[in-house]
């Protein structure tokens, strides 16, 4: 008697619809029915877009100073739909940074990092930094003037770190200065080391969310008689899929209307008169103009350390002053400072 393929598979993978429902049906608080509370899923979706488009771009990309620029030009101008895939990759990177920052701001201003979720805040901080680093290494791969000098400046920033800086810089560049080995290092970091690390951290992030549940919020205008939760499957999954569809439409429009372009090829002997990094590094770039090298790097390191430690600092403040709203005011001041430095850097040539 022959078995149906489905029965054959079920005999070997004994997981049916009931078990699948059991595995996926995390109770989801009602506020996640609104899309602006779902910003955590957005960077995860964009991460998948980046993996898929990145793999496709890697089929043609050649990471060496002699070939990199030409291979990106080939992708952009000759390979079928290469311009579209590169545009998707570029815009998804931009949107991923924006989504991670917005998600983190939502977590910060709603206090969702507080006990018992401090560890997940630390994982989220690592993901924020990795998103920025993966953006930096990816931008450097094009080997055009701005990406070359951006990579040079970025690598030299590590040199400003006391004691270990010089070793970090040489490890990153594969030599004392940008050289033949540098692009392949950036490529391996961008296409393998960082994405694998991010995938592992995203898995840990989601696992911790599943273990602790999504933070609950209660609003003044909500109906107390209604259930406080709804099912992940299919309700929340459909919300996430709808967001994914909107993102894909948005990315396609951006990639078509504002496609990724090619600047002049890198010239290691001539820094352009006006040099700017990607917009999400404007803050750091302006900071580096305001303070001397080591002071700027150490102060940025201190700010990042305080961001990591914030759940523990906040807990200490709230132990002594339970009604304190220090986190809100510090958050507002930080957000305004970031916006001000970004606008400042964007509005001037030097």
């Amino acid at each position: 008697m022959s078995l149906s393929p489905l029965t054959w598979i079920r005999e070997r993978v004994p997981v049916g619809p009931e078990q699948l429902r059991e595995l996926t049906n995390e109770p989801v608080p009602n506020h996640l029915k609104k899309w602006w509370w779902c910003l955590g899923g957005t960077p995860a979706y964009l991460f998948v877009v980046q993996i898929v488009t990145g793999i496709l771009l890697a089929f043609y990309y050649k990471p060496s100073p002699q070939t990199a620029y030409e291979s990106v030009r080939y992708i952009t101008e000759e390979a079928s739909f290469g311009w579209f895939l590169r545009g998707l990759h570029k815009w998804a990177a931009t949107m991923m940074v924006a989504a991670v920052v917005l998600h983190q701001m939502r977590i910060f201003f709603t206090g969702a990092y507080r006990k018992p979720r401090e560890l997940n805040w630390l994982v989220g901080m690592c993901l924020l930094l990795l998103t920025l680093i993966v953006g930096f290494t990816g931008y450097s791969l094009v080997y055009e003037q701005l990406s070359y000098w951006g990579a040079t400046v970025g690598a030299n920033i590590t040199d400003s770190v006391p004691v270990v800086g010089v070793y970090l810089k040489e490890l990153l560049l594969g030599g004392e200065v940008y050289n033949e080995n540098t692009l392949s290092r950036f490529f391996i970091l961008h296409a393998a080391v960082l994405p694998v690390t991010m995938a592992a951290l995203i898995a840990l992030h989601v696992t911790l969310i599943r273990l602790q549940g999504v933070t609950e919020f209660h609003f003044r205008d909500e109906d107390r008689k209604k259930p406080a939760f709804f099912n992940f499957f299919p309700d929340h999954l459909l919300t996430e899929l709808s967001i994914g569809l909107v993102l894909m439409v948005l990315l396609s429009v951006l990639a078509t209307v504002l496609p990724a372009e090619m600047g002049p090829k890198a010239d290691p002997l001539s820094t352009p008169e006006v040099i700017k990094p990607e917009w999400f590094f404007y803050v750091a770039f302006r900071w580096l103009k305001l303070f001397s090298g080591t002071l700027a790097v150490l102060s940025m390191g201190l700010i990042v350390f305080l961001m990591y430690a914030w759940p523990f600092i906040d807990a200490r403040i709230r132990r002594s002053r339970p009604e304190s709203e220090a986190s809100v005011w510090i958050g507002v001041a930080g957000a305004l400072a970031i916006i001000a430095l970004t606008v400042w850097e964007a509005s001037v040539a030097h």
């Binding site: 000098w149 040079t152 400046v153 690598a155 030299n156 920033i157 400003s160 200065v177 002997l269 001539s270 820094t271 352009p272 008169e273 006006v274 040099i275 580096l288 090298g293 030097h350």
Partner: peptide
């Protein structure tokens, strides 16, 4: 941070655009 400076004769200085 390793950028290339250039001479500005009008300002009598080397300038780094980074």
């Amino acid at each position: 941070l390793g950028c290339q400076v250039h001479w500005e004769s009008q300002n009598q200085r080397f300038f780094c655009p980074c």
